Simulated assay, not measured.
Amino acid sequence: MRVYGHNPSDPQQGPRPGREYVELHGGPLDGQLYDVTGMTPANQRDGALLITEQGAYGAGGRADYALGEQAGRWEWLGDVP
């Protein structure tokens, strides 16, 4: 499974021991892992705007992901410029 922010050609693109991840569900980053190591529970509830080239706004656009109902998973809320 690929970790968000790692180059797809990087042989070390998978999860690393000792790190905490959530799975991104839906949208352009569906199925990728996002490293939340060190994030407070409050920050995790806030979610993140993640840069993606695959979203509705192309290069430099962002995909909005936030804590979902299922533990360990963030849901896609939509794309923003």
Results as ranks from 00 to 15, higher is better:
81 P>I: 13
18 G>N: 10
22 V>L: 08
80 V>L: 14
59 A>R: 11
8 P>S: 08
77 L>T: 01
76 W>I: 05
58 G>A: 04
25 H>A: 10
51 I>R: 09
16 R>S: 13
41 P>N: 02
66 A>P: 00
59 A>Q: 11
39 M>S: 12
48 A>I: 07
58 G>F: 05
7 N>P: 03
12 Q>W: 15
12 Q>A: 10
20 E>H: 08
16 R>F: 12
76 W>M: 06
61 G>F: 04
69 E>N: 13
58 G>W: 02
63 A>T: 01
76 W>A: 04
40 T>D: 06
61 G>L: 02
38 G>I: 02
52 T>K: 05
10 D>E: 05
12 Q>V: 00
76 W>K: 02
27 G>F: 03
13 Q>K: 15
9 S>D: 05
28 P>T: 08
31 G>M: 03
20 E>W: 00
51 I>K: 08
80 V>E: 15
18 G>D: 13
36 V>W: 08
39 M>H: 14
29 L>R: 05
70 Q>V: 10
81 P>A: 15
80 V>N: 13
7 N>R: 04
46 D>M: 02
31 G>N: 04
40 T>K: 05
22 V>T: 00
37 T>M: 03
36 V>Y: 09
68 G>D: 00
9 S>W: 12
78 G>Y: 07
2 R>G: 00
41 P>L: 01
24 L>T: 03
74 W>R: 01
34 Y>V: 14
81 P>Q: 15
31 G>K: 01
68 G>I: 04
9 S>P: 05
45 R>I: 09
40 T>C: 04
14 G>Y: 14
3 V>G: 10
48 A>E: 12
81 P>E: 15
54 Q>Y: 15
17 P>E: 13
8 P>Q: 09
38 G>V: 06
9 S>L: 06
80 V>W: 11
80 V>I: 13
69 E>C: 00
62 R>Y: 11
36 V>F: 08
81 P>F: 13
65 Y>P: 07
56 A>V: 03
50 L>N: 09
41 P>S: 05
15 P>T: 12
43 N>D: 11
74 W>N: 00
54 Q>L: 10
74 W>L: 07
11 P>Q: 10
53 E>G: 13
65 Y>L: 03
65 Y>F: 11
51 I>P: 03
55 G>D: 10
44 Q>S: 07
53 E>M: 05
65 Y>N: 06
2 R>F: 15
77 L>A: 08
44 Q>V: 13
53 E>A: 14
49 L>M: 12
69 E>Q: 14
16 R>W: 15
39 M>T: 11
58 G>L: 00
24 L>D: 04
11 P>E: 11
29 L>N: 09
18 G>C: 07
2 R>E: 08
36 V>K: 03
32 Q>I: 06
67 L>C: 12
9 S>F: 11
70 Q>E: 08
28 P>R: 09
38 G>L: 02
10 D>F: 02
39 M>D: 14
3 V>E: 10
13 Q>E: 14
22 V>H: 01
6 H>A: 03
33 L>F: 15
39 M>Q: 15
17 P>G: 09
